[in-house]
């Protein structure tokens, strides 16, 4: 069946349309809503967004491919981004990457056969004072050591909440995206 937004995403999408002076400006958030609904952005969903926003599908595809952080259909359930830019590299990002490769049995850019994990190298994740850092789906894992990597991978493989989560606010109940704002101010404008 062709892709379309479910009720929750439709609500947020309509709310977002109120917030920008042009339809095109809703494109980046709309692709995030697609990702939130089905876990990845693919061609049918991009065509749907293009139609909804009066944009050419080729334009939407061109914008989508410019950005590296949207989830692709080929990505695994857990996308592991290991930062390897200078501050992390100085503090042993290489060993962290090796540990992920060893425990996931994956090379960089590969996805496991069961579709559970994808391993990618990231350019600066913006958490440079808590290096080395990796991001798995939404969460940051800071001050990593090869031992922490082992524990994190083991927990994820067993379907448990991984240890060593970043000490910031936690995402109890998962990502709600623009939902809380749309609820707090439904009229949008």
């Amino acid at each position: 069946m062709a892709f379309q937004f479910n009720d929750e995403m439709k609500k947020q999408f309509e709310w977002l349309k109120q917030r920008y002076p042009t339809r095109q400006a809703v494109l980046l958030p709309a692709l995030r809503l697609v990702e939130a609904q089905q876990g990845f952005v693919d061609e049918p969903s991009m065509e749907y967004v293009a139609r909804e926003l009066d944009l050419a599908p080729a334009f939407v595809n061109g914008v989508f491919t410019f950005y590296s952080h949207y989830r692709r259909k080929s990505d695994g359930e857990h996308v592991v981004w290991v930062c390897h830019t200078l501050p992390c590299a100085l503090r042993g990002a290489c060993k962290i990457l090796e540990a992920f490769q060893e425990h996931l049995k994956l090379g960089v850019g590969e996805t496991s056969a069961d579709g559970k994990f994808t391993l990618k190298k990231a350019e600066c994740l913006g958490s440079c004072t808590t290096h080395p850092v990796a991001q798995i789906n939404e969460d940051y894992f800071e001050n990593l050591t090869p031992e922490k990597v082992r524990d994190i991978v083991l927990a994820l493989k067993n379907g448990e909440k991984p240890p060593h989560l970043s000490n910031g606010p936690s995402l109890e109940g998962g990502m709600k995206h623009w939902g809380p704002l749309a609820d707090a101010y439904p009229e949008g404008k």
Binding site: W81, A122, G168, L171, P180
Partner: peptide, 11 residues
């Protein structure tokens, strides 16, 4: 985009 938790927190 990488700041998912921070984005949600700001929302």
């Amino acid at each position: 985009g990488e700041f998912c938790v921070e984005f949600q927190h700001l929302v």
